[in-house]
């Protein structure tokens, strides 16, 4: 009876979450993808139109930055870099981290020691130091930045997954799968993975936001793309100096990040709940 109540509430809530999340994320992605067609040459510098307030000039709907560039155009085309960095780095880290976590949690022993000592070394190294070393050796660029983010973040997923595997491994349904003779690969991916994916999805949505912001610090260090190419993190950093006189320079890219993350969170929650047939995670 209790379950009925939760699941009936859940299905309404679930669909609302999905619709909102899908609309938000979908429209942001669509805008960003079409930005080249909508704003041709929107990144032009126009020093005569410096720091215009938003909604004061129909040509610059969201105002302009200190170099007179259209903020709306920059926010939308800046999404290209930000979303690429956010999505690809998280996707890479998840794949690597989940596989490593599954292996070390399930097989224990030798593999566990190897993977976890790697993880410890990784965690002991300050991110900035790692980033500088990385640039010095390999150089900058978008791909390298994503690789760096993957290297520095897979550990989080590995540790999270390993912990869940350790507790799930002793549960009876895993043992009963073993008793039936199900192969290790099937146990790992058919039984363990679906049961631990919930927290991984939550961590993923959080890390997307985090990485969009990190991109700007990495760009500052020279690892990222050309600093003139717009990106949300970069715009936020640039606007910091003007926050008292011209709030719109940093508020609009910040809003873009917020909406993206909100959309992803909604989608993530929906995905987590819809993967769990008991509906227990939503309370």
């Amino acid at each position: 009876m209790l379950f009925n109540r939760f699941s009936s509430n859940l299905s309404n809530y679930k669909s609302l979450e999905f619709i909102l999340g899908f609309l938000l994320t979908g429209s942001i992605c669509l805008l960003v993808l079409l930005s080249d067609f909508i704003f041709q040459g929107g990144d032009k510098i126009n020093l005569s139109a410096r720091l215009l307030e938003p909604f004061s000039n129909p040509d610059y709907l969201l105002g302009t930055d200190p170099l007179g560039r259209d903020i709306m155009a920059r926010v939308i085309s800046g999404g290209k870099i930000s979303l690429q960095v956010g999505f690809l780095s998280v996707a890479g880290a998840v794949v690597l981290g989940v596989i490593m976590g599954l292996i070390s949690g399930y097989y224990r022993g030798f593999w566990d020691v190897i993977v976890m000592r790697f993880a410890d070394v990784q965690l002991a190294m300050p991110f900035i130091l790692l980033a500088i070393t990385f640039i010095a050796i390999i150089g900058g660029g978008l791909t390298n930045m994503i690789i760096l983010l993957i290297i520095s973040q897979w550990v989080q997923y590995a540790r999270l997954v390993r912990g869940s595997v350790l507790s799930l491994r002793d549960r009876e349904f895993i043992q009963s799968a073993e008793a039936i003779g199900v192969s290790h690969l099937n146990i790992l991916f058919r039984h363990l993975l679906p049961n631990l994916i919930g927290p991984v999805i939550v961590l993923m949505t959080l890390n997307v936001a985090n990485n969009i912001l990190l991109e700007s610090s990495l760009t500052f260090l020279g690892l990222g793309v050309d600093p003139l190419t717009p990106s949300w993190g970069g715009m936020l950093a640039d606007g910091r100096t003007y926050i008292q006189t011209a709030w719109w320079v940093s508020v609009f890219p910040g809003l873009a990040i917020l909406l993206t993350v909100l959309g992803l969170n909604l989608l993530g929650d929906w995905l987590r709940d819809s993967l769990d047939p008991t509906g227990r995670t939503s309370k």
């Binding site: 549960r171 349904f173 009963s176 993967l275 769990d276 047939p277």
Partner: peptide, 8 residues
């Protein structure tokens, strides 16, 4: 309950 995979 514990010996059946809750997600299958």
């Amino acid at each position: 309950l514990a010996s059946l995979d809750p997600r299958k």
